[in-house]
Design a protein around this nucleic acid. Structure first.
Length: 911
RNA sequence: GCGGACGUGGCGGAACCGGUAGACGCCGGAGACUUAAAAUCUUCUGCCCUUCGGGGCGUGCGGGUUCGAGUCCCGCCGUCCGCACCA
């Protein structure tokens, strides 16, 4: 056995052995209990980074550990291969997005293989290939047929220079991130998935996900945002003339805003269904929403609806307010320039965090009045207000200044009355409201028939009365919006729809799937190349056979990642998945990835799974039984900022040398640089460390070990040269221990005789502790356990126990440093691969110590320790403690007033 | 603003259910081996005082509960994350 472990040889050798033997191929039919371990698949951006290494190492340890414990493990890998960076690369580097993506995949796959992950590469998926996205199109049509897909007008951020839609993150200070052009709001007809139909079950389902971090569950809960309350109608004292000759402004939400026409007070809202380009669109929104015809136009609006979670405070109302985009506001703008100007002003307001923080509450008094629903003699002024959101509830509110801070700020500014209607105690019923709205508990006051009720009872009472009298109803409002999946992009899954002037939007017939992206596209001109493709976008209407246009929007990349875990579990050629095969693996037992996906990806995947379940395609409700969100790999950044330079220049770690005092300078010039804070590795800060270079230098096992060491996996891991050096040293230490146990040095242990009981205890305790810690994903603790055992073995005298301990130690580290473990296993002349070896058994008898150290305290302060047999009687411990010289000295002859004995732990003498 | 997490040596962190705070690793000191260096091994390493027996202090700050608090309760301070005018 070589004196030093040589990872360059060993890594490649064992990786080849695993591959040749198909060691990590998951069998659907082995009969063993199944475990599905999954890490979030990477976007093929170019190269693997340390964050990937950390993420996949954690999953790998768990996967290998489960295998050793007798599970049939599915541990697959693939590529989230559609997305904008490929198009950006196409524009910048003049390469086809497909070529760029596929070449990145090749590179990254090679990198992953060098780290020795126990992956079943036979199930590899790339979402950009037709054999994946074709099935996605089929699933889209399934949802379409089930009525879970619809089309509606929606606002997007439009970059007029790049002629493309921008995500919110790509709009910086109102300008496109790439072009710098002022972004416009445009309405486009787009496809939506009815995730709001699942809002209730997505919320309820969170309760059963007890192996998810509370943080993520809470974030999803807030995102779904369920609010219960009262939706009710305000009647205007005089109707507002409607916008002339035109339908009311299209509404962003499928639920109308409850704007009433004069004769039909309860008529549904005006529609958002401006027919899509050219012809009738047979695909209705969830609620058919008739557009007011010419006959209705001009007759005016006589009422509107508001939503409140606090109907109990209704007698505290002192004004009503509507959003700037509300139909009434729009109608007023037509005839009142001041109103129009105010609305424009509202729209100009920034949307950044800082601006909202300081944004002043502003309103425009429309001069209109609404009748209080419970007191027709009471009239309230109607404002257009900048803090009312058109997207939430009904886009209109009633203002109760005494018990809502925003309303209070608003009322103070415009001199509106502030009436307390909730008081913590009866004595405080007449107390005036200061600068802070009262939102605490109490009973209702100044509220006529509600007086004396709690808020809860008041809410119930007002809703009951509204429903009985027909002016409102109890309702639930969600923050969650339907999922808009249309992207005006090339590099995505084509939406399998054909638009026909005569028949509307018609699904592509199943036998014509996949709708394959054309390869002959160019990115020389801005805009979506599918739109200007000479032939691809033309098709025959599947319904009438006439000439028609293919949908040129593609699906949001989050659709790709919403079902890839199902395709991993089962991948027939002719269907997205086989139901029974998929169900045999799902749900994923442990899913590991970054917390940045806590909301969107995980919510969409949950929705998609539930949608498939509802339509009978899959008998699984939740895709991920266990979820773990790991921390980032961080590193200090180094920068220099000279006088007059606008932004700092960053340097890579290898351009830098550190001084003992922690300061840093450029190796080349000696110039001082600023040591930045330890933060996420990123290209822009140039504080990345390339895994390949590290593996070249230290081998895969040292990198893996470092990824698991020290930092708890959910926290950030600071990369350090010293850390990887330490891991390298430990790998070599393990190798030396293994060498001692290997054939060549048998004499070392044969010289000893008898059993080393303390070492045996330590061994069995460690086996149990490492297993428990891996199980809990507490890898840093498992690593510490291993160190302790290694220390104990090194100190122990030669004995058969020591030999046994070394062999077990190799098994314990096999999931973490698999190459070294295989090499050591082979040198021990053991049959087969350690990857297939069982986890060492634990003798429960050896987990218990027979002697314990007892702390002896006087008045809670540690004064002595003593050794006693485990389970010693309380009286004996007390006698032993009092017999101690040290204790007697501290007591100075005083008699103890009281003695507390905790068996096997401590004795505390109260003097 | 709302919600959440966290705060322990020079550093990463450990500490079961309230019971010896600082496991394990890193950095650092001293020593061994070596012509020398690297590697390796031994050993020390929370802070302060010490007559080297030991003593005092110590888990962000201030209180409290308890025989006993890093852990529980109340009030502050700070850092980080998420959401953000959500009626």
């Amino acid at each position: 056995m070589a004196a030093r472990f040589n990872p360059l040889e060993a890594d490649a050798h064992w990786q080849k052995v695993w591959e040749e033997r198909g060691t990590f191929h998951a069998s659907d039919s082995s009969g063993k209990p199944k475990a599905y371990i999954l890490e979030m698949f990477p976007y093929p951006s170019g190269r693997i980074h340390m964050g990937h290494v950390r993420n996949y190492t954690m999953g790998d340890v768990l996967a290998r550990f489960r295998r050793m414990n007798g599970f049939e493990v599915l541990h697959p890998m693939g590529w989230d291969a559609f997305g904008m960076p490929a198009e950006n690369a196409a524009m910048e580097k003049k390469v086809h997005p497909g070529a760029w993506t596929r070449s990145n995949i090749e590179t990254m796959k090679g990198q992953l293989k060098r780290i020795g992950f126990a992956l079943d590469w036979s199930r590899e998926i790339a979402t950009c290939e037709p054999d994946y996205y074709g099935h996605e199109q089929a699933l889209f049509l399934d949802l379409f047929e089930a009525g879970l897909v619809y089309r509606k007008q929606s606002e997007v951020n439009w970059d007029p220079v790049d002629m493309t839609v921008l995500a919110n993150e790509q709009v910086i200070d109102g300008r496109g991130w790439r072009s710098g052009a002022l972004v416009e709001r445009r309405k486009l007809s787009q496809w939506f998935l009815k995730i709001t139909d699942f809002a209730d079950e997505l919320l309820d389902g969170l309760g059963a996900l007890d192996q998810w971090p509370d943080k993520v569950r809470l974030m999803q809960e807030n995102w779904i945002g369920k609010s219960q309350g009262l939706r009710f109608r305000f009647d205007l004292t005089a109707p507002v003339p409607d916008r002339e000759g035109t339908p009311l402004a299209p509404l962003p939400e499928r639920e109308g805003l409850g704007v009433g026409q004069p004769e039909g007070g309860s008529m549904p809202a005006s529609g958002s269904h401006a027919a899509s380009e050219g012809g009738p669109d047979p695909i209705e929104g969830p609620e058919p929403q008739p557009t007011p015809g010419p006959s209705l136009a001009g007759r005016g609006i006589s009422s509107f609806e508001v939503f409140t979670t606090r109907p109990d405070t209704i007698f505290g109302a002192s004004f009503a307010a509507i959003a700037a985009d509300h139909p009434i506001a729009q109608a007023l703008a037509d005839r009142n320039p001041a109103a129009g100007a105010f609305i424009e002003d509202c729209k100009r307001g920034g949307t950044t965090a800082a601006e909202l923080e300081t944004a002043e509450k502003k309103g425009f008094d429309t001069g209109l009045r609404v009748r209080h629903p419970l007191d027709s003699a009471c009239e309230l002024p109607l404002y257009i207000a900048n803090f009312v959101l058109i997207d939430y509830g009904t886009g209109a509110i009633f203002g109760c200044p005494a018990h809502d801070q925003r309303d209070l700020d608003f009322a103070r500014k415009y001199g509106l009355p502030v009436t307390r209607v909730v008081a913590p105690t009866p004595e405080e019923a007449a107390d005036p409201i200061g600068d802070e709205a009262y939102t605490g508990p109490g009973r209702l006051v100044n509220s006529r028939f509600l007086d004396g009720l709690t808020a809860q009872d008041g809410i119930r009472e007002v809703i009951a009365r509204a429903e009985a009298d027909g002016w409102g109803e109890g309702t639930t409002v969600w923050r969650l919006r339907d999922w808009g999946v249309s992207r005006q992009r090339y590099w995505g899954t084509p939406i399998p729809i054909i638009h026909c002037d005569a028949c509307g939007a018609v699904p592509v017939p199943r036998e014509q799937l996949p709708v394959v992206l054309p390869e002959d596209v160019s990115f020389d001109i801005p805009g979506n190349p599918l739109d200007r493709h000479p032939s691809w976008n033309k098709a025959d209407c599947p319904s009438c056979g006439g000439s028609a246009r293919r949908e040129t929007d593609t699906l949001d990349t989050f659709v790709n990642s919403s079902w890839y875990f199902i395709r991993f579990a089962s991948q027939p050629a002719d269907a997205p998945f086989d139901k029974a095969a998929a169900e045999s693996w799902l749900p994923v037992d442990q899913y590991i990835g970054g917390v940045e996906h806590a909301i969107l990806h995980l919510l969409y995947a949950r929705f998609w799974t539930r949608a498939l379940n509802r339509i009978g395609r899959l008998g699984v409700e939740e895709p991920f039984k266990g979820l773990f969100t790991q921390g980032m790999v961080t590193h200090p950044s180094y920068s220099r900022k000279r006088e007059g330079e606008e932004r700092p220049i960053y340097f890579t770690p290898d351009e830098i040398a550190r001084r003992p005092d922690g300061s840093a300078y450029l190796t080349a010039s000696g110039e001082d640089v600023i040591v930045g804070r330890v933060e996420k590795m990123s290209k822009s800060k140039r504080n990345t460390v390339d895994p390949d270079e590290i593996i070249d230098q230290y081998g895969a096992d040292a990198v893996r070990w470092f990824m698991l060491s020290d930092s708890p996996p959910e926290r950030d891991l600071p990369w350090s040269e010293a850390g990887i050096e330490g891991s390298w040293r430990f790998v070599q230490r393990l190798w030396r221990l293994a060498s001692e146990a290997a054939g060549g040095s048998h004499s070392t242990w044969l010289g000893g005789d008898g059993e080393d009981k303390p070492l045996a205890r330590k061994l069995h305790q460690t086996v149990a502790a490492v297993a428990a810690n891996i199980e809990a994903l507490a890898f840093n603790k498992a690593v510490a356990n291993v160190y302790e055992l290694a220390n104990a073995i090194e100190k122990a005298a030669p004995s058969p126990t020591r030999q046994q301990a070394i062999e077990s130690l190799i098994l314990l580290v096999a999931p973490m440093v698999p190459h070294l473990a295989e090499a050591a296993w082979a040198s021990l002349d053991r049959d087969g691969l350690i990857a297939d070896a069982p986890w060492p058994e634990v003798d429960p008898a050896l987990l218990i110590e027979d002697e314990v150290t007892i702390a002896v305290q006087v008045n809670g302060k540690l004064r002595d320790t003593l050794t006693a047999a485990k389970g010693a009687a309380k009286d004996d411990l007390e006698q032993l403690a009092l017999a101690s010289d040290k204790i007697q000295r501290v007591l100075e002859g005083k008699a103890p007033r009281k003695v507390i004995v905790v068996p096997d732990r401590l004795v505390n003498i109260v003097a």
